[in-house]
Amino acid sequence: MLSCKEAAALVSESLDRKLPLGQRIALRMHLLFCRFCRRFSRQVLFLRGTADRVRGEKEGEEPPVSDSLSAEAKEKIEQALKTHSESKSKP
């Protein structure tokens, strides 16, 4: 029988690759009897759901992060864009 630590590690791994049959069965057995590992399993699926949302960033939708560029960095970028587009347009 798997320990909770082993089961939880397999739960995590199962998000990244298909587990071999033996491990899949062992994990199922464990989850059948262990509600804490069942909860953890739902929780990592929830995390996958948050990631899907972050990755899904639809057109016109802001990524769910509030940080923005410092004014200083923006200035630097504007400047770089300007110099480069000017030097490009010159023959």
């Binding site: 972050v54 960033e57 802001e62 990524p63 992060v65 940080d67 923005s68 560029l69 410092s70 960095a73 923006k74 630097k76 970028i77 770089a80």
Partner: peptide, 24 residues
């Protein structure tokens, strides 16, 4: 787009300076 790209990079790189550089 500067802010948008910066946020996109910051979440993934976890490094403000790095994210600014990458946007530039």
């Amino acid at each position: 787009y500067a802010d948008y790209l910066f946020r996109y990079a910051l979440v993934r790189l976890r490094d403000r300076q790095g994210a600014e550089d990458v946007v530039q």
